[in-house]
Write a protein that binds this DNA or RNA. Sequence first.
DNA 1: GATAGAAATTGGTCCGACCAGATTGGTGGG
DNA 2: CCCACCAATCTGGTCGGACCAATTTCTATC
Lengths: 232, 232
Amino acid sequence: MTASGSRPEEIAQEIRKDIFRGRYRPGERLPSERELAERAGANRGSAREALKILAQQRLIEVRPGGSRVIPVHRASLEVLGHVLQMSGAPDPDLLAQLLDVHELLWAGAVRLAVERASDEELGRARELLATLSRERISEEEYLRTIAALLEIIAEASHNLVLRMVGNSLFTILGAVVPLLQRLRPSHATLLPAVRKVRRALARRDPVAAEQGIRALLRLKREYVLKKLGTPR
Amino acid sequence: MTASGSRPEEIAQEIRKDIFRGRYRPGERLPSERELAERAGANRGSAREALKILAQQRLIEVRPGGSRVIPVHRASLEVLGHVLQMSGAPDPDLLAQLLDVHELLWAGAVRLAVERASDEELGRARELLATLSRERISEEEYLRTIAALLEIIAEASHNLVLRMVGNSLFTILGAVVPLLQRLRPSHATLLPAVRKVRRALARRDPVAAEQGIRALLRLKREYVLKKLGTPR
DNA sequence: GATAGAAATTGGTCCGACCAGATTGGTGGG
DNA sequence: CCCACCAATCTGGTCGGACCAATTTCTATC
């Protein structure tokens, strides 16, 4: 019925669905490994592994006596991807929240990055910005370039934590965004933001860089949400 | 040798150590499930589960033919806690990075929160601030109150993503910080920041609130790092 | 030396079994 | 009628062994 992955992943997905649909409410007890296994026509080991997956995503808590559901807002970031991909189209509200945090985080990151980046890192960033400001840039290349740009920012920030959080957010976004089309802002709207970032990097001006990245990501945000029909 | 948890968790910890110590380098292949099991004197299932744990933390990638190590900066946030608890005292640099992101995130969060919070939520926050500004507050209560305050901020921001990221950061910090003592700034240094936040909440001034929380968290940061002897 | 094929290895899944701790339901005393 | 107590039952934790398909590694061949 589902689609992908290994047997345990399938089972986990099934349970996740049930949790999101409200079949199992927070605090409630989940069926036992044995029952889940039987229900899915799988081995107990597979069902067990499925539960372990959900447990590590902090969506459930498994302990002797029975596993229990944990409120979503206590769960790990990773479940977000699954939430967004639950029903056909991603929930616009949630996506907007994700983009908010995305913007917040990278804005802060670029600030640190500009302060600490080596000239070489700065150079690579500048190249990417040049790519972004090119007249004819494909949808795919736009997304890829933005990704690379953020990757450099994360690296240049010399902050491992930032890099890790950025990874998570980007992974989630990357899994959802491609579902929508026409995500690339027009060249005309894109250019000013790119120019701003460019100048900020040249002058090593953290505040300006922050504003520039904010503008850049906000463009992405606007286009994504507009595509979903409910801009805020 | 290690300490806690289930058999698989012990094995996972052992492997993690080896990865962090550089015994297994990124891209390198890990021993097979069978060998790891034998080496640990455990069942293959347990070794397998250990690998699954590490895989879900994106520290390794397990696939037919052999599991491979992934660079730390690609890993999930959750491994951070383990990195910090590796050697006796947490690495000051890394802890500083963590606190930087902590501050960045909550500063952004409080901004959203002040804009969107209900009066009831605001009231609860105000109570906590009152607790913080009390003359005689124990070490433990200080930490607990800060935690509760951030929790409310996360809730009031009405941003699920923020809440989740905050959870992760807070969990990591919570696991590390208690190891150090004397984390509570003196009442005199604490008071101005608390006052600032308080006024900002009363006026629903997002910018002021952001600055206030920043100040509050920076105090925490200073004290934590000073305790470690290497402030920056 | 390159390559195609055979053999060993690896993870994926299944089955069945035992243990210790938790849950549950019944029972007897208050 | 309520509550404390205890035994049957259930739950997750771990173990051992087995088979499969895909990958990796080795080898004989060209």
